[in-house]
Amino acid sequence: MKKHPDINEKVEEALNSLEGIQKAELQPYFYTRLTARLQRNEKTLWERMGSFLAKPAVAGVCLCVILVFNAFILFRHNSGAKNSLSIAGTQNEQIITDNEYILASGSSFDYENFDQQ
């Protein structure tokens, strides 16, 4: 280690070296460079929409809405299936009844035709 007699003096000089410091100034045309950067940073509608949807709160709410909508569709589909079963049952009964009617009417039609012939 080097002994220096005037270390304290040097330290004080260094500490006071910022006395009377002038403010640094930017290179010319800073505003032009800044506006060019702002234009580069301008987002399109899709980018803005993307960054809005990417926010955790928005994404969470969207996810919840989708889940609730899915649950609603699923629930509705199940209750709809039950209804269609009972409707199908009624339709079958109707078909049988109609067939019987057709058979019955067919036989009566034959008689009528027979009479005409």
Partner: peptide
């Protein structure tokens, strides 16, 4: 080297900025 430092203080200021 800060451009606003007086010429006589350049060396001392550089040491101070490092600290």
């Amino acid at each position: 080297h800060h451009p606003g430092v007086v010429l006589d203080n350049k060396e001392n200021a550089a040491v101070l900025f490092r600290a």
